[in-house]
């Protein structure tokens, strides 16, 4: 394995359990259409490479995310994050902790 590849492996996001904060905290998957929330953190259950990918897609703690649309039967959903639209499945949105914004 080359040095470059090793370096890539180090880039995987290590997800840390967040300090529990009071408030309307929940899962991204639980938001209804039209709701906006702030990302708190990503769940350990995602695994390192998936967490890193969601981070690279703009799912960063502190970022705002809104639910624009749900597909027929509620899965997947189109989210607005970092100025663009991306579709995610419930399997992923379930693992994103968010704080609801009024």
């Amino acid at each position: 394995m080359s040095i470059g590849t090793l370096r890539l492996h180090e880039r995987h996001a290590r997800v840390t359990p967040a300090a529990r904060q009071p408030g309307a905290e929940g899962r991204l998957a639980d938001l209804r259409k039209g709701m906006t929330a702030e990302i708190v953190d990503l769940d350990l259950a995602l695994g390192d490479s998936t967490a890193r990918r969601l981070f690279d897609l703009g799912f960063v703690p502190g970022a705002r995310v809104s639910v624009l649309r749900k597909a027929p039967m509620g899965d997947p959903v189109i989210l607005q994050v970092a100025g663009y639209e991306v579709a995610l499945r419930k399997a992923q949105t379930q693992s994103v902790r968010v704080r609801r914004l009024s």
């Binding site: 695994g47 490479s49 998936t50 969601l54 997947p76 579709a87 995610l88 992923q92």
Partner: peptide
């Protein structure tokens, strides 16, 4: 394999 994420830009 590990569960890999589904994501698709619109």
């Amino acid at each position: 394999g590990p569960a890999l994420p589904f994501y698709m830009e619109m």
